[in-house]
Amino acid sequence: MAMAVEGGGTLSEIHQSAKKLLMKARDGVEKLERLESSTSTGGYDSPELSFAVKKDISQIQSLCVEMDRLWRSISFKSQRDLWRRKVEQIAEEAEQLKESLDKYLLRNQRRMNEARERADLLGRANGESSHVLRIFDEEAQAMQSVRNSSRMIQESFATGTAILAKYAEQRERLKKAQRKALDVLNTVGLSNSVLRLIERRNRVDRWIKYVGMISTVVIIFLFWRWTR
C-alpha cells in the first residue's frame, strides 16, 4: 500500500529517499574516517564533507519523523508492523551515523586544540632557545676571556722563569769570577781588610740578586691576581 505524503511523494518514495540519503551519509562518514586515519601521514580534514554528512543525517531524521506519522495511519496491522520495522531500521542507522559523526567531530576538535597547543609551545620554545643560545654565547665569551687570561699568565710565568734562570746563570758566573779574584788576591798577598771589603760587597750583591728575584715573583703573582 502506498500512502500519499502531503507535499508530494508516498511512504515508499520517502523510504527510498531516506535509504539513498542513508547510503550517501554512510559513505561520507567512511570517507571522513579514512581522511582521519591518513592525517598522521599527510592526510587532511574536510569541513565541507562533515557539514554535508551532518545535513544528510538531519534530513534522514526528518524523513523518519514523517514516515513514522504515515505508517501509523496504515489500516492493516501486518503492513503497519512491516513499515514500523523499516522506519525504525532507518532511524537506528541514522542515529548510529550521527554518533559516528559526533565522535569524529570531537576527535577533530581535539586534534585542532593539540595542534594549537603545539604551535604555542613551539613559539615559546623558539623564544627560549634564543635566550639559551644567548646565554651560551655569553658563557663562550667568558670562557674565551678566561683562556686568554690564562695564556697571558702562562706567558708571564714563562718570562719570569726565564728571568730567574738568567739570574741563576749570572750568579754562577759571579761565583766563578769571585773565586778567581780571591785566588788572584791571595796570590798577590792582599791584606785581610781588602778581602773583607770584597766579601761584604759580595754579600750586598747577593742581597740585591735575592731582592730582584723576590720582586719578580711578586710582580708575576700580582699580575695573575689582577687578570682573574
Rank of each mutant, 00 (worst) to 15 (best):
I57N: 01
I57K: 01
Q59M: 11
Q59C: 06
I60M: 03
Q61D: 01
S62T: 10
L63Y: 03
C64Q: 02
V65H: 09
V65G: 14
E66S: 10
M67F: 01
M67V: 03
D68A: 11
L70R: 02
S73R: 11
S75Y: 10
S75M: 08
F76Q: 13
F76C: 09
S78D: 15
R80I: 05
D81R: 09
D81F: 10
D81H: 08
L82H: 13
W83L: 09
R85C: 05
R85N: 13
R85M: 12
R85P: 00
V87K: 07
V87F: 04
E88C: 07
I90E: 04
A91C: 07
A91L: 07
E93Q: 11
A94D: 04
A94K: 00
Q96D: 06
Q96I: 05
K98S: 13
L101T: 02
L101H: 01
L101R: 02
D102N: 05
L105T: 05
L105A: 06
L105M: 08
R107W: 04
N108F: 03
N108H: 07
Q109A: 14
Q109P: 00
R110D: 08
M112Y: 10
N113V: 08
N113H: 11
N113A: 15
E114M: 12
E114C: 07
A115Y: 07
R116F: 12
A119R: 08
G123H: 09
G123Y: 05
G123T: 09
A125D: 01
N126Y: 06
S129V: 02
S130I: 12
H131V: 10
V132E: 07
R134C: 06
I135G: 02
I135A: 10
D137Y: 08
A140P: 02
A142N: 13
M143E: 13
S145E: 15
S145W: 05
V146C: 09
N148V: 10
R151V: 07
R151S: 15
I153G: 01
I153Q: 06
Q154V: 09
F157P: 01
T159R: 13
T159N: 12
T161P: 00
T161Y: 13
T161D: 10
I163H: 11
L164Y: 06
